[in-house]
Design a protein around this nucleic acid. Structure first.
Lengths: 205, 205
DNA sequence: GTCTATAGGACGATAGAC
DNA sequence: GTCTATCGTCCTATAGAC
């Protein structure tokens, strides 16, 4: 951090960071993203996160309240783009539900598998069921409701049958996270389109 | 434990177990199954496992070498039935590949979602990538190869296109684990059949 | 703003009594 | 066969120097 005049303030870091984004909070989030997705949340220490972000463990607490805040923020940043996309698509009555469902699936897979780290894999961590992450789960539920509405429009199903089809479509999307994890070499955009095609076949349109 | 004559040996437990299966190793596995699936592997202590099995933490080491052995055994016991089923189906040339693929999907979902605990959820734990669980991953790979062979027989696809379809089918099956976790009230056998139907639609037959 | 140091607790595993 | 006790390690979070 620097003053408006450009003078450095605060004690210098023990290990100076080469380039990288000069935003310490962002670096912490990036480090957490990598470690949480690869080693899991519970198995990742605050030490490991902080050190990878180029600071000592205690310094982390200057930027975040603790480990949970890191996970909560990562989760919400991951579901937010898909949710924004879903809200937009729901208002576009001009296009058919079938086409909009395809587009939602494609965009969702693109987000889940497209980043540097496999952030979609965070959804699968057991810790996500905790109190602290209710905000994320609410957003995810709203996204699922959007899927349901588009499946309904595309198929004229209703009731339990509609729920079942929606669950299968939604399950496919979340399942592809695992596939992508096992073979990350496949181009994401091709894979996203193929998954969207498959989702429509599951929905039965 | 008792002698052939029925006399109790060893120091009595601090907390006597009511009924339950009198096999201590089995009780440990059952306790681990519940805790690992609900709280995750890394977040579950050996203390918690042992105590739920009705013994002190240290006593656990009389039956298993440690935490990892519990997870390894649970994983292998979960994939084994599906793999046995797949091997049988691969030899049944009399039935069409399409029908056998459907049956494999149905049986797999039944195993993954049918038990008391959602053992299928263990596949998703980040720790499973560890050295110690290579045996499980090998079995899972063989199962996936069986899926691939049946998809090939049912569709006449080949090469990259066959790989892609197989991954989508396999991803659906693993994805439904998550669905079942979010709504465990739905009858498993109905759900398993619906998932198998969906898998065939993804495969494109 | 970042550090060192440490409090205070939980963990996995082992030793040895009973 | 099961216990109690404990070792050594690692953890999260805080206090306070610089």
């Amino acid at each position: 951090m620097t003053t408006p005049g450009g003078r450095r303030v605060g004690r210098p870091r023990a290990v100076e960071r080469a380039g990288k984004g000069a935003d310490p909070r962002g670096e912490l989030l990036g480090a957490a993203a990598e470690l949480f997705t690869v080693k899991g949340y519970a198995a990742t220490s605050t030490r490991a996160v902080a050190e990878r972000a180029g600071m000592r463990q205690a310094t982390m607490y200057h930027y975040v309240s603790g480990k949970e805040e890191l996970l909560a923020e990562l989760l919400e940043s991951t579901v937010a783009p898909s949710l924004a996309c879903a809200r937009t698509l729901l208002t576009e009555d001009g296009r058919g539900a079938r086409e909009r469902l395809w587009e939602l699936c494609r965009a969702d897979v693109e987000v889940l598998c497209g980043g540097t780290y496999n952030l979609g894999g965070l959804y699968l961590l057991p810790e996500v069921r905790g109190e602290r992450f209710a905000g994320f789960r609410t957003a995810r539920d709203e996204l699922k409701a959007a899927y349901r509405e588009l499946v309904a429009g595309a198929t004229s199903l209703e009731g339990g049958e509609l729920d079942l089809r929606t669950d299968l479509v939604f399950g496919l999307i979340e399942g592809v996270i695992l596939i992508h994890r096992s073979d990350p070499t496949r181009p994401v955009s091709e894979f996203a389109r193929a998954t969207a095609d498959a989702a429509l076949r599951i929905a039965g349109v």
